[in-house]
Design a protein around this nucleic acid. Structure first.
Lengths: 351, 351
DNA sequence: TTCCCAGTAGAAAGCGCTTTCTGTCATCTC
DNA sequence: GAGATGACAGAAAGCGCTTTCTACTGGGAA
């Protein structure tokens, strides 16, 4: 029924070993023999049996990329860049044909662990975890232990936009400078003269949420505005609906708000919608700022002031680290800077 | 070094066969024995060797989801929904723990084929191809033949938002009614009184592009406006930059344009940006319409008139078809209707 | 009591590949 | 021209699992 290596060998009048060597290209095979084998492969329409090959060689060509929400371009951009980097890296080296796949955890810790186990089962060549992590003691420990096991088993582990695993240097980490990006964003607002600034935060138990919020509060505190921050912060999901609701709530709590900082651009879009529905102009009545600088942010009306994260670059780099095309820096942790993008959605408050 | 089934068997004082049976749960094992085995698995921290298991069982739990552009929410939403459906379907049935992964082709035909081969190598349980296909005779034939082989080898193949493979009923297909959606969108514009309508189309060689364009032209022709359509159509990529450029070009060709229909919402956003930069108001001077109704479309200013495609539902359904949780209709092809969403970016032309 | 069968567990034969260890020539070297 | 040296090719031993076939229980039916 299905064609096997042996069939190809028989047809090419060589041993299975030779066919394997031609296919893997890591052993000298005479040109004429090689050609004969290749012809047989073609004629029989042979396709290598991946599991068998992985079993015998004790390695696989799977690379897993875990994302929290595949429908969110934030992750899509990183994942796409990583996948490209991995696809390109493959062409060079022999046997480098990797199958880079992205796994969507949907933000669920169980699914994150499930995927990690499944990848461990498959003896994945590498695993890339993108985006913030859930800040749950137990879950973090479980993930850390899983990652250590993966690394021990020879799987390269790369974190992209995720805080490093404390004390595990075998895991390369690229982390975004969320805190200082957020701080500079809020400083920008403060320098414009805003004092009553609402914060539409992400889910309370995520590292990204916390880091951005901390950056914001640092800036506020430095301006002597540490008080009442709890009141001016509303948590929600990383989506537009959450931004809409949070804005309404913030407005209820503090009607004299002059600016709203959102957890990310998508949330900011929801905030803008809510403000408009309330009849408030942006930035005339209320300034709005986002985070990430996703492609649509520049097209928002008014164009969104935000913090740019080099998602594409980070993803590509993570891909190269996963392929071992690029060396991780000593210590394994690289901090990726964030850049403030001032656009039209922020302006001095109406005096 | 690594723990194997045999180690677990030894520790639990049973045969490897029994351990396998406990793990796969498809054979009666006494409760006490099962528990003993499970304990041993836990104590030894055993992880099944996927390749070995796939080899022996001649099946794998990999499900591949191919997308053209993972950074585009159009694909992200479908892929996410499919992945969820597959993850959920898994919990019920025994041995249903599937590894749903998404593969990003980046629109490249070679990579599409490469991924298909890689999935074939892995003896994937199912493959879902999403989005339009490249309209290249040779490539389509290559893909069709590959899909037939996959299906023959027992891999379930599902097309989602992609035209069916002619003459292959083993491949289930969910196709979007792009043509009639596009037709109704243009009819809407015509009914508002527009006559000079520009079309910012997608890449010329994609099925989606062609179907939408055909729907548009049908409507134009029905209104007696078949002439000059070539001039009023500009092709480009499915991104905002293309929409921007296409709009500028359309304006150059036909300065008295009163409406622009874009290949999708992202392109429409670019079109809006170009119009604004030109000092034209939307919909006052020029109406703009998109396609897909991605989440951000409702937040565009003005809110985008577009055609809604039930991406989430389609993805979920594709996932269920891939899991064989849902039966494909006889013939294998399901057409998914598109719904016109009239919002604020279209209005009667200035008289 | 004897026989049979349901309920469990084990033995062992692969699944299709990779790779180490052995050759076997043909080509040099002196 | 003999021995040494490469350059290739083959034999065969697994890789770690699944699954068929066989074997052993004990309890009910006869």
């Amino acid at each position: 029924m299905t064609v096997t290596l042996a069939d190809v060998a028989a047809r090419a009048r060589v041993s299975p070993a030779t066919v394997s060597r031609v296919l893997n290209g890591n052993y000298p095979v005479a040109a004429s023999t090689r050609e004969r084998v290749l012809r047989a492969v073609d004629e029989l329409d042979y396709v290598l049996n991946g599991p068998a090959s992985s079993l015998a060689a004790a390695t696989s060509d799977l690379v897993g990329i875990l994302v929290n929400d595949i429908a969110d371009p934030f992750f899509g951009i990183m994942a796409g860049a990583a996948q490209s980097a991995i696809g390109e890296g493959a062409s060079g080296r022999a046997g480098g044909e990797k199958l880079a796949v992205v796994c969507n955890t949907g933000g669920s810790p169980e699914r994150e662990l499930t995927y990690l186990t499944l990848l461990q089962r498959q003896r994945a060549a590498a695993v890339i975890l993108t985006g913030g992590s859930l800040e749950d003691e137990e879950h973090m420990a479980a993930v850390a232990s899983k990652l250590t096991k993966l690394a021990d088993a020879g799987t390269r582990v790369v974190l992209c936009g995720r805080p490093p695993v404390p004390g595990d240097a075998s895991v390369a980490a690229l982390t975004f400078d969320n805190r200082s990006g957020a701080r500079r964003l809020t400083e920008h607002l403060l320098s414009l003269g805003h004092r009553r600034i609402g914060y539409a935060a992400g889910p309370a138990d995520r590292t990204t949420t916390r880091h951005r919020l901390e950056g914001h509060r640092e800036a506020m505190a430095a301006a002597g505005l540490a008080d009442g921050q709890e009141t001016l912060t509303v948590h929600g999901a990383y989506d537009r609906g959450a931004g809409y609701d949070a804005t309404l709530e913030l407005l209820r709590r503090e009607p004299s708000l002059t600016a709203i900082v959102a957890a990310n651009d998508t949330v900011a879009l929801g905030a803008c919608a809510a403000l408009r529905d309330r009849g408030l102009s942006i930035p005339g009545d209320v300034s709005v700022a986002g985070f990430d600088d996703l492609p649509f942010s520049v097209d928002a009306v008014p164009a969104l002031t935000t913090v740019r994260l080099p998602l594409h670059e980070a993803g590509a780099r993570a891909g190269r680290l996963a392929m071992a095309t690029e060396e991780a820096p000593p210590g394994g942790v690289t901090t990726i800077p964030a850049e403030l993008m001032v656009r039209d959605s922020t302006a001095p408050p109406r005096s």
